[in-house]
Structure formats: C-alpha cells, structure tokens
Design a protein around this nucleic acid. Structure first.
Length: 287
RNA sequence: GGGGGAGUCGCAUAGCGGCAAUUGCAACAGACUGUAAAUCUGUCCUCUUCGGAGUUCAUUGGUUCGAGUCCAAUCUCCCCCA
C-alpha cells in the first residue's frame, strides 16, 4: 500500500522497521524489495539495507537516519511515506522523542563493574521511574540505561529530537482471522523461498548466534532449529504463534498511541487496492 | 472373546474424601523513550454493586455431614492376549 501511495503522491518510502535496516536479512524481515518496482517505475526507499547484519541499531539511530532521509526527500520536493512495522520507531517520530546523544562510556561502565544488579537498579530508580523490567532484566541493558541517564545529567542540552511534522497516520484494519491466515500463508512461502538458508548464511558469515536470537521471530526460531534444538515442525509452530503474537502486540502499541491522543485513520484493509489507495490519497489531500 | 488402563475449564496436564479445582501452551488485555519483530505484566467456567452468587471434572444412580476423588451400571477411547 505504501508503494501504491508513493505512485500517486510522488512519494518515497521510509521504512520504520527495526530489522529491515540490516543487509542480508531479507526473507526473515519481509523486505519484499521487488514490490518497489511497478512497471518501469522504481519507488525510492530509505532505511533498508543500511547496516550490516549483527550491528547494533536503536531508536536513537533510527531517529537520526529518519531525519536525514526525510530532509532529502523534502528537498527533492517529494512526499515522505513512513511505513512499518515497529511501533516505537513510528512513535519516536510522531511524538518526537527527546533522546540524549549518549555515547558508550567505557570509563563509566568500568566504575559500575563492581556493583550488583540490585544496586545498579536502585541507582537507576533515582533517575527514572522504572516502568517495568525492560531496563533491568539484563545487565547489558541496565548499564546502558544508567549510562544514558548519567550522560543526561551532565549534558542536559545534548539531545536529539524530531521537530513536529505535519502528518497523517493511516492504519489498515483487517479482521483478526484474515491476519492470522495471511501470516500462515506468508510464512510457508518464505520458508519455501529459502528463509532457512538465509539464516544459515548469516551464521556462516559470522553473525553471532546470540545476536540472531535477539532479532527474534524468524531469526530466533530458525537459529534454534539449525542448532538442532528443535524439530522442523516445532520450529514452524513456534514461529507461527510468535508472529501471531507479535502482530497482536503491534495493535496494542497502536491502541496505546491512540489513548495518548494520536489520531490514526483506520481504513478497511479488505477493500480493493485501488479504491483503498484513492481513499487514503483523499484523506491526504485534506491536510 | 479374555485381561488391563483412561475420560478434568480450547489443547495438554495435576488432583487419591473438604476445590472453582494444579501447571504448561494457546487465547485475550496491558506496559513500553537507546536490543522494541525485544522485554515484561495481568486475565482466562458463568454472572457480579468485586463482597460475593451460581453452575462444573463422560453419563446416570449410590455411599458419605461432604465426591473430580469411593462403589455400581452405561457410553466412549487406548493398550496387551486371543
């Protein structure tokens, strides 16, 4: 649909997807790069294939990369279309997260080494309200969270944010059964098209297994399978339910955004592609 | 035909006289500002004015103050011997 809109609005697509940024991760992230070519037209896209698989990437970098892509598209006089994916990434643009420009601080981490996780958690609690265990579950995240807070204390003005953008948010509404159905079909297709080989290739190219496990879903479950930790059937079932649950969590995130007052225009995703595109273009023109 | 075992809330499991009933999965809902396709939380027989109320453990009877638990019959399924 993003491609359809780009065709009609002289648009360029910015991917809001935390994993499509990585090269070599194609089937597992559902890049569908061939869909960007329509007839003899090639729709430009951004923030896909901009990092090597295995590298770290985060909202901070996404915001940064987004801004560059956005400005380039604007300068060219085209329409930016953000499409995804990762709820928090979209939110970081729409809400304009203020993120401190905190580098990895080896010295600071060294200082923290001798403290226990509990002590560090208490320390972090002095800076921020601990909403859940996201920041304190693993030491790595805990250190990073502290590092960011510490940096913010000493550099109150060094943060990055996105200026308010005029935007229209479109959500495609589909019955749950249709979503589940499509997830299954798509999963089988991708397995047939070599998704397992893709993961094997990443491993052969030296992407650490722990990293693949953290990418989740396809990369996690297929890595388990390739390590002989589960059968093909178990992998398939596990993956299928994981993707179903993920798609549910996406909806939870979008509802969360709406609850905070962000308007999402939900359109009927079942209707004909052209009519749907027309409907969205009409909404856009009203802006 | 003979012998043995089993039927519990979507699925799988616990339960051995005091139980709305254990645990896992799924499902549903939620949180979320640097791993976010990650990570974590809650609900899950029905109704509820959240105190409780009403129905449950294949079916029907029985024993008992009290039955998912014991007994009998019936139905269904599994295993072994023929």
């Amino acid at each position: 649909m993003a491609v359809q809109l780009a065709l009609r609005l002289d648009g360029e697509i910015i991917s809001a997807d935390s994993r499509q940024v990585f090269r070599g991760m194609n089937l597992g992230t559902g890049k569908d790069l061939d869909e960007y070519t329509v007839g003899n037209r090639q729709i430009p896209y951004h923030l896909i294939d901009i990092r090597d698989a295995g590298e770290e990437y985060s909202v901070y970098q996404f915001q940064n990369d987004f801004r560059k892509a956005y400005e380039a598209i604007r300068i060219a006089g085209h329409t930016p279309i953000l499409c995804g994916g990762t709820g928090m990434y979209i939110d970081s643009i729409v809400t304009g997260y203020r993120l401190p420009d905190a580098p990895i601080d080896v010295n600071y981490r060294h200082q923290l080494e001798s403290y226990s996780d509990e002590e560090l958690t208490q320390r972090l609690a002095k800076y921020i309200k601990l909403h859940n265990h996201t920041d304190t579950e693993t030491r790595e995240r805990l250190l990073r969270a502290l590092e960011i807070q510490e940096f913010q204390q000493s550099h109150p003005d060094a943060f990055q944010s996105i200026p308010p953008l005029q935007h229209l948010i479109i959500g495609l509404r589909l019955p749950r059964e249709v979503v589940v159905d499509r997830i299954g079909i798509r999963l089988r297709q991708r397995l047939q098209n070599g998704m397992i080989d893709e993961v094997r290739r990443l491993i052969d190219n030296g992407v650490p297994k722990e990293r693949l496990l953290r990418y989740g879903l396809e990369y996690k479950n297929i890595t388990y399978y390739l390590q002989g930790l589960c059968s093909y059937e178990e992998m398939y079932e596990r993956l299928f339910t994981d993707i179903r649950r993920f798609s549910k969590r996406q909806m939870t995130w979008f509802r969360h955004m709406e609850r905070r007052g962000i308007v999402i225009h939900w359109v009927d995703g079942l209707q004909d592609k052209d009519r749907l595109a027309q409907e969205i273009v009409a909404l856009y023109k009203e802006l």
